[in-house]
Lab assay of single mutants.
Amino acid sequence: MEQATVKWFNAEKGFGFIERENGDDVFVHFSAIQGDGFKSLDEGQAVTFDVEEGQRGPQAANVQKA
Rank of each mutant, 00 (worst) to 15 (best):
44 G>R: 05
16 G>C: 07
38 F>C: 11
46 A>R: 14
52 E>Q: 12
7 K>F: 08
56 R>W: 15
50 D>M: 14
14 G>E: 03
53 E>D: 11
42 D>I: 15
59 Q>C: 07
39 K>R: 11
31 S>C: 07
40 S>A: 10
61 A>K: 12
4 A>Q: 04
5 T>E: 05
27 F>T: 02
18 I>R: 00
19 E>P: 00
18 I>L: 15
38 F>K: 09
28 V>D: 03
25 D>H: 14
11 A>W: 11
27 F>W: 06
24 D>R: 13
21 E>L: 12
36 D>H: 13
12 E>F: 12
29 H>I: 05
60 A>C: 05
14 G>T: 03
45 Q>C: 09
33 I>H: 00
23 G>V: 02
8 W>M: 01
11 A>N: 11
56 R>S: 09
37 G>L: 06
43 E>I: 15
48 T>M: 11
20 R>F: 07
26 V>N: 00
31 S>Q: 06
13 K>T: 07
15 F>P: 00
64 Q>Y: 11
42 D>G: 10
30 F>M: 06
31 S>G: 05
54 G>F: 05
15 F>D: 03
23 G>N: 08
45 Q>R: 02
4 A>T: 03
2 E>P: 08
32 A>P: 01
3 Q>W: 15
15 F>M: 05
9 F>Q: 03
18 I>H: 00
57 G>E: 02
53 E>I: 15
21 E>K: 12
40 S>Q: 10
22 N>L: 09
65 K>A: 11
61 A>W: 05
38 F>M: 08
46 A>Q: 12
63 V>F: 00
4 A>M: 03
53 E>A: 10
21 E>W: 12
47 V>L: 00
10 N>A: 06
59 Q>I: 09
28 V>K: 00
21 E>T: 12
57 G>Y: 04
26 V>W: 04
50 D>H: 15
44 G>C: 08
15 F>A: 02
42 D>L: 15
53 E>K: 10
49 F>N: 01
48 T>Y: 14
16 G>N: 02
23 G>Y: 07
26 V>G: 03
53 E>L: 14
27 F>I: 03
29 H>W: 04
47 V>A: 03
61 A>F: 10
3 Q>F: 15
3 Q>P: 08
37 G>R: 04
34 Q>L: 13
57 G>Q: 04
7 K>I: 05
9 F>S: 03
55 Q>D: 12
47 V>K: 00
13 K>L: 13
23 G>K: 10
18 I>D: 03
23 G>T: 05
52 E>H: 11
47 V>Q: 01
22 N>Q: 10
65 K>M: 11
55 Q>L: 14
38 F>L: 09
27 F>M: 01
61 A>N: 08
10 N>L: 04
15 F>C: 08
60 A>H: 00
59 Q>H: 09
61 A>H: 09
32 A>T: 07
17 F>Q: 01
41 L>C: 05
27 F>K: 02
20 R>S: 06
9 F>N: 04
58 P>L: 11
40 S>K: 11
53 E>C: 14
17 F>C: 06
21 E>P: 13
50 D>E: 14
53 E>R: 09
39 K>G: 06
52 E>L: 12
38 F>N: 08
6 V>G: 03
3 Q>D: 06
47 V>Y: 03
47 V>C: 05
20 R>D: 04
42 D>K: 15
33 I>C: 07
53 E>H: 12
16 G>T: 01
31 S>H: 07
40 S>T: 14
7 K>W: 02
60 A>K: 01
31 S>T: 13
50 D>K: 14
66 A>C: 13
15 F>L: 05
26 V>E: 00
4 A>V: 03
66 A>H: 13
42 D>P: 07
32 A>N: 06
65 K>W: 09
51 V>Q: 05
66 A>W: 12
29 H>P: 05
57 G>S: 06
44 G>F: 05
26 V>C: 05
23 G>Q: 09
16 G>S: 00
18 I>C: 07
6 V>L: 04
42 D>S: 14
13 K>D: 03
21 E>I: 11
26 V>D: 01
40 S>Y: 14
38 F>P: 10
61 A>Y: 09
32 A>V: 07
51 V>M: 11
22 N>W: 11
24 D>M: 12
51 V>Y: 10
14 G>I: 01
24 D>Y: 09
19 E>V: 14
17 F>R: 01
37 G>K: 06
15 F>Q: 02
58 P>K: 10
2 E>W: 14
1 M>K: 15
49 F>V: 04
26 V>S: 00
21 E>F: 10
24 D>V: 13
46 A>C: 15
62 N>G: 04
34 Q>A: 11
32 A>Q: 08
57 G>W: 05
1 M>E: 09
15 F>K: 00
28 V>H: 02
45 Q>H: 06
9 F>Y: 10
61 A>R: 09
36 D>Y: 11
14 G>R: 00
38 F>H: 09
24 D>T: 14
55 Q>G: 10
45 Q>V: 08
7 K>N: 05
65 K>R: 09
25 D>V: 13
31 S>N: 07
24 D>A: 14
6 V>S: 01
63 V>Q: 04
47 V>D: 01
15 F>G: 00
15 F>I: 08
59 Q>L: 05
39 K>C: 09
14 G>F: 01
11 A>M: 10
7 K>L: 05
15 F>H: 06
37 G>W: 07
29 H>V: 03
27 F>S: 02
49 F>T: 01
58 P>E: 06
10 N>W: 09
65 K>F: 11
58 P>D: 05
21 E>G: 10
8 W>A: 02
37 G>M: 05
33 I>M: 04
17 F>I: 07
32 A>I: 03
20 R>G: 05
5 T>D: 05
34 Q>M: 13
33 I>S: 01
62 N>P: 00
30 F>Q: 07
28 V>A: 00
32 A>F: 05
23 G>C: 06
56 R>D: 06
21 E>D: 11
42 D>H: 15
43 E>P: 15
13 K>V: 09
47 V>R: 00
46 A>I: 15
60 A>T: 03
41 L>M: 04
58 P>W: 10
27 F>V: 01
10 N>K: 05
6 V>E: 02
64 Q>C: 10
63 V>R: 00
31 S>P: 01
66 A>D: 10
63 V>G: 00
13 K>C: 09
60 A>V: 03
60 A>Y: 01
13 K>E: 04
66 A>L: 15
26 V>M: 07
30 F>D: 02
25 D>R: 11
41 L>W: 03
22 N>F: 12
60 A>R: 00
43 E>C: 13
14 G>D: 03
25 D>E: 10
8 W>N: 03
15 F>E: 02
5 T>C: 13
59 Q>M: 09
25 D>F: 12
60 A>F: 04
37 G>P: 06
19 E>M: 15
57 G>F: 04
3 Q>Y: 15
46 A>W: 15
24 D>W: 08
48 T>S: 10
12 E>M: 12
37 G>T: 05
1 M>Q: 14
17 F>G: 00
12 E>D: 11
1 M>D: 08
17 F>T: 01
56 R>V: 06
18 I>S: 01
5 T>P: 03
4 A>H: 05
14 G>C: 06
28 V>E: 01
42 D>W: 15
